[in-house]
């Protein structure tokens, strides 16, 4: 029983990480039709900015409130880089989908190399606040606090995102834009302003994933974002593009499946099961769990 609880909660921790990356990807894709290969870069930016701030930013530090400040700095950096990428690189290629993908591919290659050139390819030890190093006993299982932190953070982000989408005018524009972008402009709304905002939100969420993922793994390296990105893509497709709630469900399914199969089967089998799940979802329901058709 305690193993079950442990696996469930650490699986949810993994799901939280996926959700933080996938929610932004999904919104960006749903609204702006951009498959953002550079999204993993936003995660790395968040991780490195947090790591840097913990050592250098006045007031910030590796534990306690100092760490909160450092993570906040990371999140702001991720959002700023994402907004900048949208404004400078993506916007001039508006409605040329393939070229946009190509640019984000180039950016992901160059960005990771840039991080490598600056801080080296090897993992750096990441600041881990006191509390996150401990465990909490739940139902007889000792759950790493870092997992709990991830789950709480993802739940908070999910709630905030839903409130934002539901109750603000920009949220309304985003929901409508995911359904039919043209009609939004035909009502006199400059939908491109929402693009920048969605990029920034996605960048912030990914950066948070970077900061908390760093705490969880205890280290940060330039390629981290890229490997997480592939599972985030799977989550986005399974969840249905443009749907935040769909991403949340899919992230939980993927995280739990991976954790349980990797534990009870061979290591690595869980990852393969996740791709099999993707194939099944595509065969049965090509448009994903929630919403908009993925085909065409």
């Amino acid at each position: 029983m305690s193993t079950f609880i442990l696996l469930t909660l650490t699986g949810l921790g993994l799901a939280a990480l996926y959700f933080l990356v996938a929610s932004g990807l999904s919104l960006v894709f749903g609204l702006a039709d951009v498959l953002n290969f550079a999204h993993g870069l936003f995660l790395s930016v968040g991780a490195y900015a947090t790591w840097w701030a913990a050592g250098h930013l006045p007031g910030a530090g590796p534990t306690g409130f100092g760490f909160v400040l450092a993570a906040a700095f990371g999140v702001v950096a991720g959002a700023a880089v994402a907004a900048l990428v949208e404004l400078v690189l993506i916007r001039p290629l508006y409605s040329r989908t393939i070229e946009q993908v190509l640019v984000t591919v180039g950016l992901s290659l160059a960005g990771v190399a840039l991080l490598q050139a600056t801080w080296g390819a090897d993992p750096r030890p990441f600041p881990r606040p006191e509390w996150t190093r401990g465990v909490t006993g739940i139902g007889g299982a000792n759950i790493p606090n870092a997992s709990l932190l991830l789950v709480l953070a993802a739940a908070a982000v999910l709630t905030l995102l839903l409130l934002f989408l539901r109750f603000t005018r920009v949220g309304l524009v985003i929901r409508a834009g995911v359904e039919n972008r043209e009609m939004v402009t035909a009502l006199g709304i400059d939908v491109r302003k929402a693009f920048t905002l969605v990029f920034a939100i996605g960048g912030a969420a990914a950066a948070l994933a970077g900061a908390l993922g760093g705490v969880y793994l205890g280290s940060v390296s330039p390629a981290q974002g890229g490997s997480l990105l592939i599972f985030a893509f799977i989550v986005v497709v399974i969840g249905g593009m443009g749907s935040v709630v769909g991403s949340a469900y899919a992230a939980v399914a993927v995280g739990l499946l991976q954790q349980f199969v990797n534990y009870y089967g061979t290591a690595g089998l869980g990852d393969i099961c996740v791709v099999a799940l993707l194939a099944i979802v595509l065969l049965v329901r090509p448009q994903g769990i929630a919403g908009r058709a993925v085909t065409a």
Binding site: T97, I230, F233, I272, L282, T295, A296
Partner: peptide, 22 residues
């Protein structure tokens, strides 16, 4: 190929990832 465009890109990426994991 049951999907198209961007989804196709993601799905082929996921399949290739299985190869990498194996």
């Amino acid at each position: 190929l049951r999907t198209a465009g961007i989804a196709f890109a993601m799905v082929t990426l996921a399949f290739a990832q299985v190869g990498a994991i194996l």
